[in-house]
């Protein structure tokens, strides 16, 4: 007795799409509430502005726009998608998942659809899973979408976070390929540092202490230990990037682009130094204009990079996601062809 299995195949990123909220918010608009200034924010993080979604721009509407753009560029329709993986920490319902709402509005309610919770590493986790699903033959075309409306979960009066987090959505379609175009994922956790980035309190606290409410308990906004995260990102996560290059058998000078999670320009530059990314490689710096959009930041940065540097289509890129957990994932991918 034996079980029939398809032969292991290869996978590729067929296209990328993104959605940026309409409202661009410069540092000058947010500094008063946190006794900060444009110079300090730019010097520490590189951030000049960020985008905040309006009431009509929801997790689902932003993700829908990003997915529709990716579908159009891949010349596919939603019926061609058999799996949707959605990474977010800011969908305001516990269940059903954001992925099922999204696949329904996209028009293919029969496809497999689920959310993953890996914070700012969520997109790279999704790419890792999608690639393996396609390679194993479980799925044919997978939509991987990272989407965040972090303005709903950021305290505008918190000096450690208010200037960092932002909103947006980015998506890729991962499908079959003749050649390997997505390298092995190197991933893992440093879960003993779970306290470094948290969204507290639990929802149940509001039921348990209705007399206190949001006024006393606070809202589950992001809070973080900035220097702990900085140190971990620069020194621990950079090593993950080096391992992902080794796992794919790619040297830094063979890359076209370096697209790490857009958390802080200083982290990005120090990571590039640690990984020994040569000057010939284009480094994504979307953080400067659009802030830290967590799970959405890598596909957003990828999309804008390909728009600014069309010659990067089809070249290799190192992706590194890292964030609350603490969790991380990295892989080398071939950037999608020109649509």
């Amino acid at each position: 007795m034996s079980i029939k299995l398809p032969a292991i195949g290869n996978s590729q990123i067929l296209s990328v799409g993104s959605y940026r909220p309409k409202r661009l918010v410069p540092n000058s608009e947010i500094v008063d509430r946190i006794e900060s200034n444009d110079e300090w924010i730019q010097q520490r993080t590189g951030i000049q502005s960020r985008r905040f979604a309006g009431a009509d721009e929801t997790v689902i509407s932003m993700a829908q726009a990003a997915c529709e753009s990716a579908l159009k560029r891949a010349k596919l329709t939603i019926e061609d998608i058999d799996t949707l993986i959605l990474a977010t920490i800011s969908y305001p319902f516990q269940a059903p998942s954001a992925a099922t709402e999204l696949i329904n509005v996209l028009g293919n309610p029969k496809a497999a659809a689920f959310d993953i919770s890996a914070a700012c590493a969520g997109f790279c986790y999704g790419v890792a899973m999608a690639s393996d699903l396609v390679r194993a033959g479980t799925s044919k075309n997978v939509l991987v979408v990272g989407v965040e409306k972090l303005s709903d979960f950021t305290d505008p009066d918190d000096r450690a976070t208010a200037f960092i987090f932002a909103d947006g959505a980015g998506a890729v379609i991962i499908g079959q390929s003749q050649e390997p175009c997505i390298g092995p994922a190197v991933w893992g956790s440093d879960a003993d540092a779970r306290d470094a980035i948290v969204l507290n309190p639990a929802y149940t606290e509001f039921r348990n202490a209705p007399d206190k409410g949001v006024a006393e308990l606070g809202w589950p906004n992001i809070s973080q230990q900035g220097q702990t995260v900085y140190r971990w990102a620069v020194f621990t996560v950079s090593k993950v990037g080096i391992k992902a290059l080794e796992a794919a058998g790619v040297r830094p000078d063979e890359l076209g682009a370096f697209i790490p999670h857009q958390a802080n320009m200083r982290i990005i530059e120090s990571m590039a130094k640690e990984i020994k990314i040569p000057e010939s490689v284009v480094i994504a710096d979307d953080i400067r204009v659009n802030g830290n959009t967590s799970a959405a930041s890598i596909p957003l940065a990828m999309d804008v990079l390909l728009e600014q540097h069309p010659e990067l289509h089809g070249t290799l890129a190192l992706l590194i996601g890292y964030g609350a957990g603490l969790v991380y994932a990295a892989q080398v991918v071939q950037l999608p062809p020109k649509p």
Binding site: Q43, R44, Q227, Y230, R231, V234, F235, R266, S270
Partner: peptide, 11 residues
């Protein structure tokens, strides 16, 4: 050497 560069010096 600001507080973030200091993190790098320390490591």
């Amino acid at each position: 050497v600001d507080s973030l560069s200091m993190v790098e010096v320390v490591v």
